[in-house]
């Protein structure tokens, strides 16, 4: 079994986690830029963080045979702090990187005017840099937040097939699926989604455009819940091919739209995508 975790904050995780992930079949991860537990107070704090998720963290991951890519953005919560917003001007430098495969996490936290502005501006950056977009949906007032996110995506002109809406659940999945975006689900120990609830959603809505992630970070979370979900799928009668599709080929297909996903040095991937073993552009 090979696992691609399309959303995990490895900067908050230990080397023990990397070892357990590698031992369990996790071969590739994407680390989206987001908030840390402690609010930041300026652009320099962001750029050091961005440097870490495009520099030090891929190096750490490589020591365990795990391929690490990143997504870059000003997250919605900190978009509300005027001291942080100047980081928007520095984003183009980072969105040009080989290892950056999407703009994200963008979207809404509290649905403020400042969040509106940062969300729209960063969807425009995704278009400029020919990158997909990873959109965080709010944890509070979720259904309304989802609808508003879909409206902003539509207004931006970006192809919905290049957008993933994350942290979906039973209440929000249908509207997202109707809009034609990719469907991201975060599997958590107590909150968000569980492996069994995920399996039920896969039964009802099918495996097309579904992305399953652990979104593991500095809170109570578990980097192996992707693996537990794959096991729950198998137990429920999904084929090996379905499991591989959801836990590997779907995230590969989504992020390969960047033209920068490079899995050439990942072992045991066993297959190619669209006939290419090297997925980044120009190959």
């Amino acid at each position: 079994m090979r696992i691609f975790d399309p959303h995990i904050h490895m900067t908050s995780r230990t080397t023990d986690d990397y070892q357990r992930m590698a031992d369990s079949g996790v071969r590739a991860v994407v680390e989206p830029a987001f908030w840390l537990g402690q609010p930041r107070t300026g652009p320099g704090s962001f750029t050091d963080y961005f440097d870490s998720i495009i520099g030090w963290e891929p190096f750490r991951a490589s020591q365990f045979g795990i391929r690490h890519h990143a997504t870059i953005a000003l997250n919605p919560k900190e978009a509300n702090d005027p001291r942080c917003r100047p980081v928007l001007d520095l984003l183009p430098r980072y969105l040009a990187k080989d290892g950056v495969v999407a703009v994200g996490e963008i979207g809404y936290d509290s649905m403020t005017p400042a969040e509106d502005e940062a969300f729209a501006a960063q969807l425009a950056l995704a278009l400029d840099h020919e990158l997909p977009a990873l959109v965080h949906t709010p944890h509070r007032d979720k259904a309304r937040g989802l609808q508003r996110s879909l409206d902003v995506v539509k207004e931006s002109g970006i192809d919905p097939g290049r957008v993933a809406l994350d942290h979906l659940n039973e209440v929000t999945v249908a509207a997202a699926k109707d809009a034609g975006v990719w469907l991201g689900f975060s599997i958590y120990p107590d909150t968000k989604m569980s492996p069994d609830r995920m399996v039920a959603i896969l039964r009802e809505y099918g495996p097309e455009r579904v992305l399953v992630n652990s979104a593991a970070d500095w809170g109570k979370s578990d980097p192996l819940l992707t693996v537990r979900t794959a096991e729950a799928m198998a137990k429920d009668g999904f084929s090996e091919d379905d499991v591989d599709r959801v836990l590997w080929r779907n995230p590969v297909e989504f992020y390969a739209q960047s033209g920068r996903l490079d899995l050439s040095d990942v072992t045991d991937t066993g297959a190619t995508f669209a006939g290419n073993s090297i997925l980044r552009g120009g190959s």
Partner: peptide, 13 residues
């Protein structure tokens, strides 16, 4: 150069 330097592999091989 700020936009071209990071993209060198993709632009020039």
């Amino acid at each position: 150069v700020g936009g071209l330097f990071p993209a060198a592999g993709r632009r020039y091989g």
